[in-house]
Design a protein around this nucleic acid. Structure first.
Lengths: 227, 227
DNA sequence: ACAGGCGGAATGAACATTCACTCCACAGAA
DNA sequence: TTCTGTGGAGTGAATGTTCATTCCGCCTGT
């Protein structure tokens, strides 16, 4: 068997093995310095292995990072689905998923920043464009958050905005805040998290009527491109 | 006079000059590939100048990027303040600033991603931590968005959340959406922008009473760290 | 002719990757 | 049990490449 295969064996999940040491060192360093900012020599040093050892487990630096991303991204998604109940209300399902992102980010700062880095890299965006990034066991269909939005819009509980905008309104603030937390710029307590999650819900929920204010454009007349 | 000084002279703002060509090439490439991902040779080629020429205008690669960041970041802030009226309502001032970010990002995708990259780099976060990043003519005081939040909280128009959370709720979705737009994943029309801005306001505004729902924590009992 | 901006080859440092070697666990012979 | 041969994990110096930076000669305007 080729040792470079991505098949999961006991040797590949045993913590303390060279392979796991390399993976953790890579996640930690790349989350901080980025792909091009972390030489193999630095990874080897952080992992406490020889540089050559890394090439016993991974074909090259690209493969190393790509393989790790797949594993970390899948684990992240699995975490979100833990305890997820499709029979709950739209709001509760939404809060469950968003809270999951929050908690994952706080508990796994290196993995969180690693995923972030990857998604914002040229490779990440091309993956996202081709929708190839969701083959971790799920069938390539919509993410649960997108299902919640679709269901919520059908029930007129969630605003009629493009999916991308809803995702931005939900995830954007969380990613922003978690990054600040990881950077040590703020200290997140449970109350702030709860209130922020509630605010995210306020952003996407469809109000039932009364005093909705229109958004007027004061300066620019109308710069629509495609109506 | 030292040519490496950051003082602004006519030679430094004339578009079409070697210096400007280098700056624009750097912004474009670094916004796409990041600092370590863009060699000087690539910048020289993109700018259509010799590699050595870059060192006639900038001491080294670090200085090049840092100098550009200062200029771009200041220009960005100036754009936001254009047409800003401190006598408007909290909501209108908020929308003005957020709309400005949106428009700046769409009209200046390279500069936008460049700023993003920088803020998320180790250098950027340390700058943010030390609050040194706002010396572009302003007096180092709070950003206008923070002033709006403070005033809004005093008037009980804006939620009692930490400033960092309010900023995340306001800017997070916009950054998220603009990045998707730049990556070509979505097409932003003015209606979507308006509705997203309104949703951002919904996220931070203090509701006047009635049916506020509490956010309950289903699984975790209470993981507060500092009450 | 000459001063200085400019390009790009030259330079040395840092990098990704390779490879000849060491070390160790274990199987089989004695 | 002890000795010995073997295979494969592990190593880090060696290799060739790429990078940031320097330097020198060309070329243009005066």
């Amino acid at each position: 068997m080729n040792i470079h295969s991505t098949e999961i064996s006991s040797a590949q999940t045993d913590p303390g093995s060279k392979r796991e040491l390399i993976i953790h060192a890579t996640i930690k360093l790349i989350s901080e310095y980025g792909f091009h900012g972390t030489p193999i020599s630095m990874i080897a040093h952080e992992a406490g292995v020889g540089a050559g050892t890394i090439y016993r487990y991974f074909k090259d630096k690209d493969t190393l990072v790509l393989d790790i991303f797949k594993v970390v991204n899948c684990a992240f998604k699995q975490t979100l689905l833990h305890g997820y109940d499709a029979n709950q209300t739209i709001r509760d399902r939404f809060l469950h998923l968003c809270r999951g992102i929050f908690q994952y980010g706080i508990q796994n700062p290196y993995e969180f920043k690693f995923i972030e880095q990857f998604y914002n890299s040229p490779y990440g965006t091309s993956l996202r464009r081709e929708k190839l990034f969701c083959n971790c066991g799920d069938t390539g269909q919509d993410l649960p958050l997108e299902q919640v939005f679709a269901a919520g819009q059908a029930q007129q509980v969630i605003k009629e905005l493009p999916q991308a905008a809803l995702i931005a309104l939900a995830i954007g603030p969380i990613v922003f805040l978690v990054k600040d937390s990881i950077a040590g710029l703020i200290q997140l307590d449970q109350t702030t998290i709860n209130n922020t999650l509630a605010a995210c819900w306020d952003a996407i929920q469809q109000e039932t009527g009364n005093n909705r204010q229109p958004v007027i454009t004061p300066s620019s007349p109308s710069t629509d491109k495609k109506p």
